[in-house]
């Protein structure tokens, strides 16, 4: 099953063209890794999928982007963002307690019954492998957690609204190797139930967790193939050069 389809997708921020004629399909229950140097358009592409680019001044799009076969511009934006969750590059807890962070999205979508909210918070924290570390101090400020814990809290917060797709925007860029492996472990377990799109600066991370890998360069999709193919026998020599660290 296909979750997202982009056909001839172009986007601009003012005069700057951030994506050029991108054609891509994202399948359900896969982890698609997107690699590429900075300014290659990979984060801009990711932020198309939950329409977060709409917040940027001067944003325009051309072409077609569909989610479950529907034009993404025609779907109710709050409903879309509920179904397509996002984890940001830096751990960004809201200035609330641990519990309230995870419960925030749930409450915004109208769930007021306390037992239901508590159950969702516990389930989400368990899915993000954070429950055992925080279960005794749920009412403590989220800023008291370590960076790695904060990032897993952000994952739990995204899971709590029960999305279908989770977008990860360089989720481990600020984390140490042990925290990184915990986040990666969580991602691999989540694949069963969710579609995951992972933007990463870390080529090795793409190799470790991605089913398929896409390589972006200067706003163009250079190559998209199975992770194994991309890392052993890429079709484009620019992909080969990037993976071997010749530029970045």
């Amino acid at each position: 099953m296909v979750k997202f389809v982009a056909k001839d997708l172009n986007i601009w921020f003012g005069q700057v063209r951030a994506l050029k004629n991108v054609d891509i399909e994202i399948k359900a229950n896969e982890i698609l890794s997107i690699i590429g140097p900075s300014n290659s358009g990979k984060t801009s592409f990711l932020r198309m999928l939950n329409r977060l680019n709409d917040l940027s001044p001067g944003f325009r799009m051309g072409g077609w982007l569909g989610f479950d076969g529907e034009d993404i511009r025609k779907i109710d934006i709050c409903g879309l963002r509920k179904r397509v969750g996002m984890v940001f590059a830096l751990p960004l807890p809201l200035p609330l307690s641990i519990f309230e962070n995870v419960a925030y999205g749930v409450k915004m979508h109208g769930e007021r019954r306390r037992p239901k909210v508590c159950a969702l918070v516990e389930h989400s924290l368990k899915q993000a492998y954070l429950w055992d570390e925080v279960k005794d101090r749920l009412d403590v400020s989220a800023f008291k957690l370590s960076g790695g814990q904060q990032q897993r809290l952000c994952i739990a917060r995204t899971l709590a609204v029960e999305p279908e797709v989770i977008l990860f925007d360089e989720p481990c860029s600020g984390l140490d190797p042990i925290s990184t492996s915990k986040v990666e472990e969580a991602m691999l377990k989540l694949k069963k139930d969710y579609t995951i799109v992972l933007v990463t600066n870390n080529v090795k991370q793409a190799a470790r967790v991605g089913d398929r890998t896409a390589f972006f360069l200067s706003g163009e999709l250079v190559e998209l193939d199975s992770t194994e193919k991309i890392f052993t026998n890429p079709a484009d020599r620019r992909t080969d050069g990037y993976i071997r660290g010749e530029f970045g």
Binding site: N50, L52, L55, C78, G79, L80, R81, K82, G85, M86, F88, L90, L92, L94, P95, Y104, G105, M108, H109, C154, R157, T158, V161
Partner: peptide, 11 residues
């Protein structure tokens, strides 16, 4: 970033 997080959760 707080606004983006909140909006990204569908608020």
């Amino acid at each position: 970033s707080f606004r983006e997080v909140s909006l990204s959760l569908g608020a």
